[in-house]
Amino acid sequence: MTITRLHPGPRMSQAVVHNNTVYLAGQVGTAGADVATQTQDCLDAIDRLLAEAGSDKSKLLQVTIWLADMADFQDMNAVYDAWIDPANPAARACGEAKLATPDYKVEFLVTAAI
């Protein structure tokens, strides 16, 4: 069994690859920026990590999105809808949660095939 850890740190890895599946750590954007900017930051990081793992957004399996405030749902979706591959949308969930700091408005968790 092979497990590859990308950008490991003392607490977590940014991505873990196992059995042709890549699991990304929660991705957050620039602290203090508006939700659209933070969403784009997250999606850019997801693109980079998926590419490094040998995947891309057309192979998304599941996306979980946590918003600090559901009032930001439309603004987040405007950015997400422009990014997602409409021919290959992932299973998705979105909910409201208290994030690591009040400066974060959105966090994305992603699983994708390779």
Rank of each mutant, 00 (worst) to 15 (best):
M1K: 09
T2G: 04
I3S: 09
T4M: 05
L6F: 14
H7M: 14
H7S: 14
G9V: 11
G9P: 05
G9L: 12
R11S: 13
R11L: 15
R11F: 15
M12W: 15
S13Q: 08
Q14W: 14
Q14H: 12
Q14P: 00
A15L: 13
V16K: 00
V16E: 04
V17L: 13
V17K: 02
V17Q: 01
N20L: 10
N20A: 14
T21F: 07
Y23E: 01
A25D: 12
G26H: 07
G26F: 09
Q27E: 13
Q27G: 02
G29V: 02
G29P: 02
T30M: 08
T30A: 07
T30Q: 12
T30E: 11
A31P: 01
A31T: 05
A31S: 07
G32W: 11
A33Q: 05
A33Y: 03
D34I: 09
V35K: 04
V35S: 05
A36S: 13
A36T: 09
A36G: 08
A36F: 04
A36I: 03
T37E: 12
T37K: 11
Q40H: 09
D41T: 05
D44F: 07
I46Q: 02
D47T: 11
L49C: 02
A51F: 06
E52T: 05
G54I: 09
G54Y: 06
G54A: 08
S55C: 00
D56H: 00
K57L: 04
K57P: 01
K57I: 07
K57S: 07
S58M: 06
K59H: 14
K59T: 03
K59Y: 04
L61I: 09
L61R: 08
Q62I: 03
Q62L: 10
V63K: 00
T64N: 07
I65W: 00
I65F: 03
W66H: 08
W66K: 08
D69Y: 06
M70R: 11
M70V: 06
A71D: 11
A71P: 01
D72E: 10
F73P: 00
M76Y: 13
M76H: 11
N77F: 12
A78D: 15
V79L: 08
W83M: 04
I84M: 11
I84H: 03
D85Q: 03
D85K: 06
D85Y: 09
P86G: 07
N88D: 05
N88C: 06
P89T: 10
P89Q: 09
A91I: 11
A91D: 15
R92V: 06
A93I: 02
C94G: 02
G95M: 10
G95W: 03
E96W: 02
E96G: 03
A97H: 13
A97P: 00
A97R: 13
K98R: 12
K98Y: 05
K98F: 04
K98E: 10
L99H: 06
L99F: 06
A100N: 05
T101E: 07
P102T: 15
Y104N: 03
Y104A: 00
V106D: 01
F108Q: 00
L109F: 09
L109C: 05
V110Q: 04
V110H: 05
V110I: 15
V110T: 15
T111V: 14
A113P: 01
I114L: 15
I114V: 14
